[in-house]
Design a protein around this nucleic acid. Structure first.
Length: 95
DNA sequence: CTCGTGACTTTGT
DNA sequence: TACAAAGCCACGA
């Protein structure tokens, strides 16, 4: 629950990393757990899972389809990325 | 209690 | 930029 609440607090047009979220949620080094939580997400939840990326600013998971979807959702909110699909954390990560 | 697993992270080639 | 190795942590078998 802590994880869901934290992810839900990320405003539109901003992103956050697994590590940051884990810390915010109380799990100091549980970045993986955050990923697991999002992975098992039903989908009908009102959670902006697409604003969650890894420390490198990239999408590190699953099917190309899923990655493409996440990228599309982010760009729709104004988050730009390099060709390699890398987000400029310095300007989009949530403080 | 021990093992395997994984939408991670760091560090070093 | 890409890959490997070694940490880390909650969970379930």
């Amino acid at each position: 629950m802590r994880i869901y609440a934290t992810v839900d607090s990320i405003p539109e047009g901003r992103v956050s990393t697994y590590g940051r979220i884990a810390e915010e949620a109380g799990i100091a080094r549980g970045a993986r757990q955050v990923g697991a939580a999002l992975r098992d997400l039903p989908g009908d939840r009102k959670i902006p899972w697409h604003r969650v990326i890894n420390a490198a600013g990239k999408i590190s998971h699953g099917s190309p389809a899923q990655a493409a979807l996440q990228r599309r959702l982010l760009e729709r909110e104004g988050v730009t990325m390099s060709e390699a699909g890398k987000v400029d954390l310095a300007s989009y990560v949530w403080p």
